[in-house]
């Protein structure tokens, strides 16, 4: 029975055809002796076979061309970057070089958005700024703090992820703000890691640990002139799929929150 967990992995290998002869033999021997795994295997074989019958409603022949046209229209409506211009169907010769005017506007707009979102998130609820003392063992409180922490980290990482060194001029002020933000987040992330249950919330703890490494890289950033470090940070975010994992955890936390809210409502109704 203690091997059942390993056998489940072999079942998936067998299902996908990624199994060696030895592993297949091991699986067969186990299935002969373990009724529970035998039932599990029959169940997943059925689910696998049945769901393979899934089909999508077909689309008309002109559907793909229409989608492409819609996409082009959407891209043409966007701020005119170098590539967007070249995607136009009938580009008109520009009387004034568009890059000369649009690049600085895009740069300033992007800077404003990043700075405003950072200010907004830090100044929105000053009474909720977290320090070590506010961390209680209250699960709900920790959950809320984790959600806020993930959301703010996501904003910070998105800023880096979207940062284009060719489009935006380096700004020491921007860098300073981001470094400051990352330092504050590191404190909160470390505190959260201590408060979370390392077994029950293993994934969240792992995510926070990965996040901490990236935040440390940002905190050690000298300036936005440090293009190599920025590339390393962008690469870390991509490689560890941090943004995807944050999304996953946020959804999980949201689900848990909704469930407890529903429970509360039903209890109230019972009363």
């Amino acid at each position: 029975m203690k091997n059942c967990h390993k056998i489940q992995s072999l079942m998936i290998d067998a299902l996908t055809g990624e199994i060696t002869a030895e592993q297949q033999q091991l699986l067969n021997e186990h299935l002969q002796t373990c009724a529970s795994c035998r039932t599990d295997y029959e169940h997943i074989l059925f689910a696998n076979q049945f769901t393979r019958n899934y089909t999508r409603p077909a689309v008309t022949a002109d559907f793909w061309q229409k989608s492409l046209d819609d996409l082009q229209a959407a891209l043409n409506q966007r701020p005119k970057t170098r590539l967007a211009f070249s995607l136009r169907f009938k580009p008109q010769p520009a009387k004034i070089s568009p890059e000369r005017f649009f690049k600085p506007i895009i740069a300033v707009t992007a800077l404003c958005i990043i700075l405003c979102s950072a200010f907004y998130h830090f100044s929105k609820k000053p009474d909720q700024v977290i320090n070590d003392k506010t961390f209680t063992s209250d699960f709900k409180n920790i959950q809320n703090q984790a959600m806020r922490c993930l959301e703010q980290s996501k904003l910070l990482l998105l800023g880096f992820s979207n940062y284009d060194q060719e489009e935006l001029p380096p700004s020491p002020a921007l860098s300073e703000k981001q470094v400051q933000m990352s330092r504050e987040l590191i404190t909160r992330v470390s505190a959260l890691q201590n408060d979370l249950d390392p077994v029950a919330q293993k994934k969240l703890v792992q995510l926070l640990s990965d996040l901490e490494v990236i935040l440390l890289q940002i905190a050690n950033l000298d300036s936005l002139h440090d293009t190599r470090s920025i590339e390393i940070i962008q690469h870390s975010v991509d490689r560890k799929s941090i943004l995807f994992k944050i999304n996953m955890e946020e959804l999980q936390l949201l689900d848990e929150k909704l469930e407890s809210a529903e429970l509360k409502t039903s209890k109230k109704k019972e009363i």
């Binding site: 489940q8 992995s9 290998d13 169940h43 059925f46 689910a47 696998n48």
Partner: peptide, 17 residues
Amino acid sequence: VKSTLFRSLKKMQKQLS
């Protein structure tokens, strides 16, 4: 990936049983 796929197939089987 394997454990998630195993879990999802079991859930699907339960729904389609």
